[in-house]
């Protein structure tokens, strides 16, 4: 049983590790939000994911792609769960280049659920050219590509401020408390009432930042709910199985010693 004890201690140590890691590169403490998807039983809030997608589409999508997400994913279980009809409508609003057709020509057609979410720029150079030389990164995996991603994203989105008098800003940069270096090429992307939510939720900056962060956490972890559900079953099974095996082990060894 000694080994079990050690591994339990080790597990406890490792679990505690990330708690200290939720700081931005500058050592600024990130804002902390109680997300619905945190913790072993965490689930996404469907209405929030739908609102988050709306924010992405009406605000972020002007510059940022989510190239690993297809339109059909929007109706997947565990995601925003739009109806298939709604997904078709959403997809049809953008055009994709397809082809070549029988004449060898490329042609434009409305996007379908099978297509990847259409990127705002045809390539990275076009994206840079339109954005003062800065490349708006793809957001599909953003919440996993930063330390303590969801909190980081929320902090950056709500962390814009006037530059303090002693900070010299480069051309076209904005001041942000949480971005490493505190100068970010992206101007403040959102302001109160910028979108009108269909479900009547007041579209404050804070609310929009939360919603879009939740949505982007789903794009990075589309199977999070499945994972949590299956994990719970596996833990129960393994615990019972370990108990049975321990009883077996004790019984088999009873006559030795």
């Amino acid at each position: 049983m000694q080994i079990t004890l050690y591994s339990a201690l080790l597990a406890a140590g490792l679990v505690l590790l990330p708690a200290g890691a939720s700081r931005a590169a500058e050592g600024v403490d990130l804002k902390h939000v109680d997300w619905s998807f945190d913790g072993p039983f965490g689930k996404f809030d469907r209405a929030q994911l739908k609102r988050g997608f709306q924010v992405y589409r009406e605000v972020c999508a002007a510059c940022h792609s989510i190239k690993f997400v297809s339109y059909r994913n929007l109706s997947d279980a565990g995601g925003p769960e739009f109806t298939e009809a709604a997904v078709k409508t959403i997809a049809a609003e953008s055009n994709v280049t397809d082809g070549p057709d029988a004449d060898g020509e490329m042609f434009e057609r409305p996007a379908e659920p099978k297509d990847r979410v259409v990127k705002p720029f045809p390539n990275d150079n076009a994206a840079r050219a339109a954005n003062n030389g800065a490349m708006p990164p793809d957001l599909s995996l953003m919440t996993k590509a930063r330390k303590d991603g969801p909190n980081y994203l929320y902090s950056v989105l709500t962390g814009y401020d006037e530059a303090p008098a002693d900070v010299v800003m480069a051309d076209g940069m904005s001041f942000n408390h949480y971005f490493p270096g505190q100068q970010i090429a992206m101007p403040q992307p959102m302001s109160d009432e910028q979108v009108t939510y269909e479900d009547g939720t007041p579209a404050t900056l804070d609310q929009m930042a939360r919603d879009v962060t939740a949505f982007l956490t789903w794009t990075a972890e589309p199977k999070l709910e499945d994972r949590h559900r299956l994990g719970f079953k596996v833990m129960i099974f393994l615990t019972i199985f370990a108990g049975l095996l321990y009883a077996t082990y004790k019984r088999v060894w009873r006559d030795q010693h």
């Binding site: 591994s7 597990a11 615990t239 370990a242």
Partner: peptide, 8 residues
């Protein structure tokens, strides 16, 4: 199995 529990 105890290790798998930890791993899971």
């Amino acid at each position: 199995v105890v290790f798998m529990l930890f791993f899971a």
